[in-house]
Design a protein around this nucleic acid. Sequence first.
DNA 1: GGCTCACATAAGGGATACTTAAGTGAAATG
DNA 2: CATTTCACTTAAGTATCCCTTATGTGAGCC
Lengths: 315, 315
Amino acid sequence: MSDRLPPLTALRAFDAAARHMSFSKAAAELNVTPAALSFQIKSLEEHLEAPLFRRLNRAVELTDAGRALAPGAADGFTALSAAWRAARRTVDQTTLTVTAGPAFTAKWLAPRLFTFAEQHPGIELRFSATLRLMDFTRDDVDVAIRFGFPREEEGLFSRKIIDEWLTPMMSPALAEQYPTPADLARAPLLHQVDTAMFKPSFDWPAWFRAAGLPPRFASGTQFSQADHALDAAVAGGGVVLARISLAEGDLREGRLVMPYKIALTTQAQYRFVCPDGVENRPQVKAFLGFLEEQTQALSGYGQDMTFVDAAEVAD
Amino acid sequence: MSDRLPPLTALRAFDAAARHMSFSKAAAELNVTPAALSFQIKSLEEHLEAPLFRRLNRAVELTDAGRALAPGAADGFTALSAAWRAARRTVDQTTLTVTAGPAFTAKWLAPRLFTFAEQHPGIELRFSATLRLMDFTRDDVDVAIRFGFPREEEGLFSRKIIDEWLTPMMSPALAEQYPTPADLARAPLLHQVDTAMFKPSFDWPAWFRAAGLPPRFASGTQFSQADHALDAAVAGGGVVLARISLAEGDLREGRLVMPYKIALTTQAQYRFVCPDGVENRPQVKAFLGFLEEQTQALSGYGQDMTFVDAAEVAD
DNA sequence: GGCTCACATAAGGGATACTTAAGTGAAATG
DNA sequence: CATTTCACTTAAGTATCCCTTATGTGAGCC
């Protein structure tokens, strides 16, 4: 009964058996015969000097010792296989998995996917749209695009993608009804809750203050995601205070217009993030270059804007 | 470059090499020759189809792939070895590791250790005194004694040890100076912060309310641990509102007395906790029996007390 | 320039782990 | 109630992997 680790193949056999609660299913998972698995379990039990399974004739069940071992063993192998996948991603030069928020994925990444595929036919892009912050070593993700304030973190490569600013946007039809900022007093406003936690805030009250108008609060529809608010604005449902990054596609196609010349700038920005070293992999370099190239198009939209920083009009 | 796990012995060799940043030290740790370890690393690199180490002539350093693999591999093997130790503890009938708070360890467990050792010479008791809540599957602990409100939790066996109550205690000399509860108005009070988060609270204000006296707040010395407050009281430093469980030893030896007959009862109690199934192991049964036997002595101390529940005098 | 250190490589032996084949006992089936 | 089936065990033989000893290589060190 040594304190050192038992044979690892036997441990893995036990893990599979405990997960399936069946030796034969475990054997199938590991591509060995049931006999081999039976031997592995037996060898592990000899190392422990105690049974791990109680053999009932039609089934097996864990002993106390087995119940003590099973969860930790499962955790261990899960960690090992995640680590191995992370190492494999490092080697693989043909795929790149990007995680971004739902709005950025829908309004920015997805429409440009075709262009990237054309420029880099050898690279397969994969998206994982979630607001959850990813752990690069545990989740199967290479790089992330996150919206937030600049922040240096140990072991992470980070780069600004977009200088963000916001201004009221609406469908051309609505722009005729509300030609001046003051007309917004009677316009339906669309709100987003997904940026509500940022301070200084860049919401409708902040923009009204920047425009020198009385703020309007708590009226209009709330959207949990920015892309849905934009879609509602395109459909003529109201006026949205949108990030230029997300709106660029709809502006270019003429589905949205920016009738007023007052914009709110913010330190919050879309940033590219990946573990240190990953930025040197060829497909990541290609993706970074693509991001820079594509974001240059944004600079044209701010030509005749008057910019007011969100911090200056903080409540 | 398969997505399945590589040979586990090779992974373990890599883990050791990455931790030591040296093949020969890793070989020594695993009790194999450096040549064997070199082969294991090489085999792992062939599975990955990429180098994991950069061989400098006097040293090795991790490649990007190695840096991606190392932390997760370390986590995995840590989890596996913790799980194995947990299983081994299940089998071992000669040792029992108990975790408890510092006060209970000092004032209750440690003084009774000798008695337990006499009754059960075959069992080696180990203590781990910490306020941190333990994870039975990860930390090397069999059973825990925790102070708190009764709470059922999935997968945990739990049993009340002591019906707790509190009353002012002090050295016999001080008791002569402060013969009645009203005299406490001019006595130095000792406070404990470690029970401050319990609601309904059982602190000095609660006791004063139970005694029908005007409460005194925020005067006297604060102790972070209950055993230190008791020691201060023994030394004549003041009056402590102490848990009967912790004070029993000092009461029995006459170092502390309870001059007033008003006590505060609370639903908070010392509880024995262990993972389901562990309560059936022989040394755990022995320890549980010992706890029950030893706590019976406490019932004698409440004979002529008037009990007021903390909930009735909650602020 | 020779020594040492750390890792690489080669070849052979020995331990592990797997396979096939046969066996056991209880539950399911008719 | 006999038969089949199912899940695991056991036995014997074999392939594989892993480790050993011995030797080789290159860079730093005295």
